[in-house]
Structures are given as C-alpha cells and as structure tokens.
Nucleic acid binder design. Sequence first.
RNA 1: GGUCCUGUGGCCGAGCGGCUAGGCAGUGGUCUGCAAAACCAUCUACAGCGGUUCGAAUCCGCUCGGGACCUCCA
Length: 490
Amino acid sequence: MTKELKLYNSLSAEKEVFKPIHSNYVGMYVCGPTVYSDVHLGNCRTFISFDMIYRYLIHLGYKVRYVRNITDAGHLVDDADEGEDKIVKKARLEQVEPMEIVQKYTVGFHDILRNFNAIPPNIEPTATGHIQEQINIIEKIISQGLAYEVNGSVYFNVDKYNETADYGILSKRKIEDLMSGTRELDGQSEKKSPLDFALWKKASPEHIMRWNSPWSDGFPGWHIECTAMSTKYLGESFDIHGGGMDLKFPHHECEIAQAQAFTGKPPVKYWLHANLLTLNGKKMSKSTGNTLLPDELFSGDTPLLEKGFDPMVVRFFMMQAHYRSVLDFSYDALLASEKGYHKLMTAYKDLDKLKVSEESSEEVSKHIAAYYSAMNDDFNTPILIANLFDTVSWINKVKVGQATISKADLIELKKELDAFITGVLGLTGGQAENNDGANKMDAVMEVIIELRKNARENKDWTSSDLIRDSLTAAGISIKDTKEGTSWSLN
RNA sequence: GGUCCUGUGGCCGAGCGGCUAGGCAGUGGUCUGCAAAACCAUCUACAGCGGUUCGAAUCCGCUCGGGACCUCCA
C-alpha cells in the first residue's frame, strides 16, 4: 500500500529512494531561525514544509528524531572581518540584554508556528548552549591541519580541505568559479583565502556576547553550531538535513566540509532544500524589508491585504505548491485558497453525516492509493490535494444521492482522510467541535433553525430571510438542503 | 561577472516525451420561495524562434522575460 518513498536529494540532484541509515529510525536536522527579529512568512514556509515532511515520515511508521536549532549567537552583521554579532547590535539598540532579545523572539517564533499547527521538534537546541561542543570540534579540525588560527580567530582552510575532499559537492560549485567571483574588497583580511570561513571569531572589546576559548575571548562562527548540534543529537552521519534554499551555499556547504574534517565521513545522507516564498516576485528578506509578518497576515493589518486569513488557510495555500518550487504570495491566491480550503474541510466534516449504502460506487482503495503515490513522489502535496478533491467530489455526490459509499468503505476513507488532511497536511478545522460551548451553540442553532423552518412553512419569507441575513452578518451561514437546514461558521 | 533555477489558460499551481491535473474565477443548466452550497456541462494554456522525434509544456539550441546564490537571511 505505501510503496516506497522517493525524495529529491540536493546532494545527487535527483530523486532517490529513501532508505534510512538505521532501518526504522530517522534522524532529521533542520536549520532553525536566527532569533533577533520576528520570523516572517518566508521563514515560516520552510518550517511548515519540513513539518509536513516530518508528519509524513511519522505517518509511514518511522521513528523520527527531529532536531531544529535556535541560532541565538554568532551571526555577523557586516563582513566577516569587522563583523558585529547581530544579536548584540539589536540589544544595544534597544538597551536590553542580548538574551532578552533571544527570549522574546524565540517565544514569538513558537507562537507563530503553533498557529500554523507545526509540531515542535523533539530537540530544539540553542547555539549558546553548545559552545563547548563547538570548541571541541574546532580543536579537532585544527589538529587535522584543516584550520588555522590568526590573532585569536580560527579559520577553516578550504584549499587544504579540497585537496582530499570536494568543497562544492552540494552546491555544485567549483573552487575556481568561486574565486573568480570574489572581489578583493578587503586587503587586510586575516584569511589565507577568501573562501575560508570562520570557525571562531575573537570578540572586539564592545562585544558582549563572548565565551572563553583556547584562542581568544570570542564567539563561534556561523556554520559550526549546526555541526555541533546535529552530530551531538543525531550522530556523525544522519539521514536528513533540511533548510531553506538560501542556506545551500555557503552554509550547508561549509557544514559538510567541517563535519567531514571533524569525523572523516559525510555527515548527511539526504539534503533537502525547501524553496522560497516570494512577495512581489522577490524573495522575502529581513534585510531588504520585503517581508510580511504572520501576524499581519492573520489580522489583515497590512496594505497588501484587504482582510486577514486563518493560519490554516495560509498553510493550505502553501501545501498547494510543491515545497521545492518558488511560491509567490498574493492576496488573490490566498482568496482562492480560502475557498478551496473550506470546500475540502466541509466535505471532510460531512463525512460523519453521509448515508451509507450496500455498495460503493467508487473504489475507495483507488482514492487512497492516489494519496500515497502523490506523497511518495517527493512529498507532492499539490497532487495529494488534487487527489483529495477527487474524493471531495465523491463525497459531495453521495450527499446529493448521485453516488454511494458502503459502511466499511466510509470507515476506511475516514481513517485515511484523518491521516492525510489532519495528520500529514496538518490542517485542522474540519472536525466537529466537541466542547461544552460548541454543544450549547448547537442547541441554540437548533432552536433558531426550527423557528426559521416554521416561518418558511408559513411562507413568511420576511422572517426567514431576516434570520438568515442576521446570522450571515454574525458570521454564520445557513444552507437549506433536501435533508434539512445546516449551518456553519464563517 | 560566475553558478544555477524558472517562464503553463483571467489568477494560483501540478505535470516534464503520447493519456481531463487540481483549486479559484467565468459561462450555461439542475435544485431552491429566494439565496448559498452541491451536482451536471462548458470556455480561456503551455514566452518566442529553430531543431531532435512517428509524436514535445515536456528533450536540445538560441532569443527575450523573471528569480536565487556568490555577503547575513528559511
């Protein structure tokens, strides 16, 4: 039934059959956010993509350890030589402690992802919590002769590494091409080659986020944290490493080089890269200001939108595109997704009210097999959704008596739709509310519908329309069907 | 400048050598007191020019758009 999962490996640049290193166990590391400002919607797309991947792996029965880091130190704001830690800069601006900034944006990040119904990772390590591990790795790399110290800073020697390994293996770049692209804008660089990258940076006097090390009071380079945390929690070689497209080079390339220098073996079997979410056709980016914040999207409080959107609609919108394709954000596209989302969820919810027959007019197994074949082909959620809409059509036909479904098939279908809609796609909002407030609401609506029914039987259209219009204004829609009147929120 | 990706109908977005993608919007119908929903039918495509092939959105070349990375960014 489930067949085999194929996924696109950036390392080989082709789709490969997924075979975890340790049969049923999967280790997955995803590069997390830098917590010095609010996460924007573009960041969210990557995390939602990997949330979907995580969910599907779990659905297939794998025992997954999902690690996603929080980068709370070490990113340089200017060039590599005269850099200032981003977190420090912001802290000074706002006159608060660096860790206060980190805390604030970490909490914000978690809130947003919860809104999007993303499952938290199993381990969410922080860079500042793993300074010692990073130092240990740097020491080992130096002892291998693949890094050198200059004035208290340590740099990775890319040329030396490239003698026995392949720097550029992931991004398919050649050292020569990279060199031709470097501008000699800094004559005073400490680095032997422009391609060398920092493993440890000596802190300038005003730099307040600093740690003691064998080389200087300083802070770790940008790439080393991921190697430290991934190897610590997932081992020297693990299955999946994910992140946004923009991290492929240099970040992931450097990670491979470091890790290989450290352990002597390739760290990752499958590299997965989620593509960017664009706004006005351009990449969302903190630095250029071309961003949209999730909160603005939910509330509609932005010139880009005429109204806000439910986080689940946004998630559905993202799932309608393949995770490796660029997706452009627009108000019109969101509106279309909102309708489609409701159509899907309404049918899903109506499953419980379906009348069953002796026989099914369609083969439930074909519908279900289609879900798996879509997802097994590199997590093709747009195809999955197209296939789900085929099922929606079937459900709707059963509703109006143009198709049938047997009891056994209905149970089977319900189980799989739960798994794919709620489980894999992570969409909520289709299940019947089952709390006290909702029960009372049901009771109230029953009364109102009964009153309106009486009015309609008396051909008192004024009253019946008044009820319907008032409810519509209150955000409750009324539908008169052959089976009676139903209502729904929104 | 270097490396790479991409251009699909009104909009979004799959497909990547032959078979209706799907959603939204539009049009005509069924149903309905009206409306909504649903159902049925239906209309708009593969940037341009060449080439390969029995056959090309799909492969190759060129041209013209758009984008990413090469510097922090999911």
